[in-house]
Design a protein around this nucleic acid. Sequence first.
DNA 1: GACATGACTATCTAGACAGCATGTC
DNA 2: CTAGATAGTCATGTC
Length: 786
Amino acid sequence: MSPAPRRDGPRDLSPQSESGVPGFQPASVHRGEPFSKTPPARRTGASLLPGPATPDPSARVPLEGFPLHPRVVEILRETGIRELYPPQAEALAPVLAGKSLLLACPTSSGKSLVAYMALVHAALEGRRGVYIVPLRALASEKYQDLEPFRRLGLKIGLTMGERDLSSEELEGIDILVSTSEKVDSLLRHRNPWMDRVGVVVADEVHLLRDPGRGPTLEVSLTRLRRRQRGLQVVALSATVGNSQDLARWLSAVHVASAFRPVPLHPGVFREGVLSFLDGSEKPQPSRGTAVEQLVHGALDEGGQALVFVNSRRSTVSVASALSRGVGARLSEGSRAALQEVLSDLDRVGEEETESVRQLRSLVPHGVAFHNASLTNPERAVVERAFREGKLRCLVATTTLAMGLNLPARRVIVRDTTRYDEALGSPVALPAMEVQQMLGRAGRPRYDPYGEAVLIARDLSEEEELRERYLTAPPENVESRLASVAVLRTHVLALVASGEVRSWEELEDFLRSTYYGQEESIEALGAHLRAARAFLETNGLLRGGEPLRATDFGHLTSDLYLDPVSAVLLRRALSRASPSTPPIAYLATLASTPDLAPLYLRAGEEADMTARYAGLAPALLLKPEEDELLPDFDSFLGTLKTASLLEAWLDDRRTLVEITGTFHIGAGDLRTRVERAEWLLSAMAELARRERRGVARALDLLSLRVRYGIREELSELVLLRGIGRVRSRLLYDAGWRDVATLAKADLPAVSGVLGSPALAEGVLDQARSYHHPSRAVRLPPADRGEA
DNA sequence: GACATGACTATCTAGACAGCATGTC
DNA sequence: CTAGATAGTCATGTC
């Protein structure tokens, strides 16, 4: 959806040419013995404590010492890389020898370069490679970083989200950059390209511990490794407690290091004084809150500041509290630069959003906020402005810590707790997460050092923060495979794609997962039986052996649906008729686990209960009748989601009005809409097999959800460049279908759309438009547009 | 009289990945 | 069962 944000490229990986780089720890290299019986060491990873300050000029290793292709060295030189950091050098040697590697070190210490070299080196030897990343934004970034290597004749591919590569396109690809779910999908579809992969890079592999998405990566890596003995795996991890365990699982050389290209000064702020771990202290400007003092202090020293808070509301309020002081510290030149940011913001979307309104009042002061209520293009504008130094201060939620590396001289983590809904109270953040945020301190090439600051109210809190987050190593990475929901999905996928054909093969597979290394798979027994019972009872798997998926099971796995979602969609379809109203379908989607429900605010419960009473007769699924549905209270939240989507279908309602009514951000609406559109097309696909009469209605609804339009606009919207806003303009100007529009003259259309170039393009399309014989079918060209 | 300040209270709480298969009016 | 920030409301204080 969003254009890939511009990045600095691999140059960031180059050692700083100016100042000496003090304070790195020599990399500890450990040849991980495959399948060794020695018990794994627990939580031995480095903390944020800087290593002994031993500036060693010989630490940087010239590229010439490595068996790299001369033209690779040449390309690296052109991007500014002549030498390697110590951990890069430690890691590169085994990688170029074809060995697997687990590299655990801090953000921005140059892990990616090692991965790029592994992929390029292998590709030049004729071995295909995949670069697996957890986020779309990272996929775009890596893809762009690999761009220069095309000159070696290598074909680089990118696949994520709706962005598919045809099998012909894929065939010529040497290096594929992909999100982990997309890799999983390629494996499920038994894509033949995957058969000849010789090297796999797993970025941010510590995300294996994420309960939602970790298992997908774990299963994919297991599948790839089982498929090919001797597959080279290059796993990149943040600093974690037990990276040796991961290395052992992957039979990989283990390289761990606390090295950072820019030294990090961790510290705690209390009562006006910033005390660093090394014992030094820095008084801060005395006015305002702790965050204000710290931000103003950083700015006065010429750095940028990044503040992490634990709620979206706080990102806005803290940014606004900071705006006066930060604005007062701006130079004339930077004021002018901020005007450019303002105009970037105006170009970010056809429809105004609440976030843009708020940003407009903050940006002139050199401050902005960043959270998931922003749309992707909005985030990209903010990120770029901060990276270019135009914004002096950014207040963000974890969006920023998870995604692109956006470093700043001083990082301030204001909140170290997060509200846990299940618990009903705040819980302390894991050290890994806090260190991930703190680790963003220090911009390579711009900052001589980085300052990572926590805030304490009193002495005891200060000690607690130091102990928990600064001096202790981060948590261990543990597998999250042991869950019925996870096994339901992956057992189905493994069976449907033919990876396992018997109970025994499944157990064998599970034994070769990371879970299987760390735990006895006997412990999975109860989960497995429950998962299997669900899949068999609901007609996704046939009973008995050999294990086989039904047609429905195959379709579910291929569509990448959660099995529970698939069952719910099918149940709903069996009760649907041509007169089923859209809200009934929308409520069905919203009650599947594939669409996250909205939070129900105080007072909305009554509204939704009333809405439920009115809608109940029309609903396809009712919570009191369906054991797979959430309980009644949660169902009201899903009804709110359905109501949101219904509001979106009325293009006469503005974005600001809709998001205001439902108390959400435009970014939240976007993600719901994307998911809903996809679920609807999956439902239409099911309908084509089981309920033909409603398939067409679902296709239409899917199109309407995609664009957020009333039915009357569903034809105009098929023209490229025409969406929710413009189709309404055209329609209200009297061009209600493509045929009528084709007869319009350019100046008139241009006047309505406000752009001659756009009008011309649209008229060209309209004049060559062929009416589809079917009601609604998206032209292939219109799909897959990012 | 306009507005600043403070006390008290009700309300709310991070993030983001994934698409089959062409056989019909 | 456990918290804490924020926004809104209302009262009081200040020029």
